[in-house]
Write a protein that binds this DNA or RNA. Sequence first.
DNA 1: CAAATACATCTGCTTTTCTGAGGAAGAATA
DNA 2: TATTCTTCCTCAGAAAAGCAGATGTATTTG
Lengths: 308, 308
Amino acid sequence: MDDLRLSLRLLRAYMVAVDCGSITGAAEVLNVAPSAVAAAIDRVEAEFGATLVVRARARGITATPAGRALAARIRPLIEDYSDVMQQGYALSQGLRGTLHIGYYAPIAPAFLPHILRNLTDNTSELNFSLQECDNITAQSGLLDGTLDVALFAGDELLAGVETRSLMDLPPYVLAPKGHALSARSELSLRDLHDTPLVLLDLPVAGAYVRRLLRAAEVTPHVVATCTSVEMVRSLVGAGAGVAVLNMRPRTQQSYGGDILRTLPLTDGDPLHLVTGRAAGTPRRLVQVFQDRLHDWFTGPEARELITL
Amino acid sequence: MDDLRLSLRLLRAYMVAVDCGSITGAAEVLNVAPSAVAAAIDRVEAEFGATLVVRARARGITATPAGRALAARIRPLIEDYSDVMQQGYALSQGLRGTLHIGYYAPIAPAFLPHILRNLTDNTSELNFSLQECDNITAQSGLLDGTLDVALFAGDELLAGVETRSLMDLPPYVLAPKGHALSARSELSLRDLHDTPLVLLDLPVAGAYVRRLLRAAEVTPHVVATCTSVEMVRSLVGAGAGVAVLNMRPRTQQSYGGDILRTLPLTDGDPLHLVTGRAAGTPRRLVQVFQDRLHDWFTGPEARELITL
DNA sequence: CAAATACATCTGCTTTTCTGAGGAAGAATA
DNA sequence: TATTCTTCCTCAGAAAAGCAGATGTATTTG
């Protein structure tokens, strides 16, 4: 790795001097003393071992053909530098770039697109990377920098992740239309005793439901475990059993075409949905997204995602 | 003109650190202490006001998406910088670029192409700018940097121009074939008395010829003054008169198709053909060209340009 | 639990860069 | 011709940037 023998400052001073045809003029443009500009020219010439500018005592300076050619190549360099700096500043101030979102919320398709569309309304230079992941990978993604922000269940927090509570998600029972349980006016976890259960067996949700049932002293009769919410829904729709879930999409129909019912439970601790990001100053885009997300979740539409 | 808030060194250190995924590793690559790299990252993050890398105590660092994007934009910047520096070094060391040549030697087409061809034999990235000019503009071109090197008559030198003698050019008489003067075995300037004269009236040559004739106490009978050698030759060929010149091309025929004779003179001070360049260290290309030129003028081919 | 790894922080040193004063050379002007 | 103006040059000292090395700490690894 060769050293940067001439700093950008030096090269820029040289370039401006060539453009101005004057050391004094360049010094004014650059807000430095003329001697600094003269020194810069000396350094550049010494480094390259050639006469790049001709100095005339009272008439300023003139670049040689080679000197002009060099200055011409420095200009785009400075401009590129400015572009990079611009992008750097835009990181914290502007709404542009790619927002990397991780979510452990299988029904995120029900609401994330709305929020993202609001975000992208004004600006165009905005991209999103949406990554479905479990609770653990979401958080480690935040920590190792592959994710800007994540939605996940607020249990089992890792150090270094700053979270904000989004919403409490009470559990509900998902049952096929016409299921015996839907006849009840009130439903408790105890009522699930001996009922065939389809379990969403993802890192946090699985343990959560098991804990819920254990707390209610219900021995689950698990007929199927799935790693996909839609598989759970379709199994339930097909009559394989019922499921305990927390969020629901905006459709009552499963992929299998069956009609599903969401039955509120009178007991059971809610799951905490949170947004998280790595500790430290986030760029503005991340903050804005997070704010919009929280705004949306305080609104009426968010209510439709849960079953009370 | 905004200041260059972050130096290239800083940006490069940041970039290398992101690439390495390690401050220590980057420090080794850059041959600096880890603390310097850490400080660089701090500076960049502080400047942009955003978290760009996630630091894990014993596992190195990982860039956030934004940090990676920024690093990716720094890389071409560094490469462009290297390119510029390469060109800079090539100025003094390599035979590339554009060589700006000015010449006050109207028959330069007779020899310059040979020399330039030799120069361009090995390398291909070589361009030439050939500018016909008079003695004064040639030298001021050197001084103001528009010319790298010039050929001109060594009289009336300007300060700041370093010259090397190329060749002494004795005057000769150009006459049409069959002219009365060609019958003589020896020809002196005095023999031109009353002979119609075509004068090349260029800044130095005109004065030179007039001085020559005055010194020989010959009153010139100027029938035409021209600013182009070929016009002089064609006028002479057409029988308008004779001319006193110093260099001759490698053809005896004028544009008008007439045959011309060059008759040596026994008297008359020669004109000094010199090469000149601005004082200071020239780039190697200029030196090489100048050397080749002088080499060529010590060879036998140069003799054909003068008439003894 | 100990060793190894790698980041964090701090202090003082070195190099780079800048300033400001004084001077000199060429150009413009009276 | 003498004077003034502009502009560049030089140099010493000061400010800033960059760096090394020591020390401390969190985390991983054996």
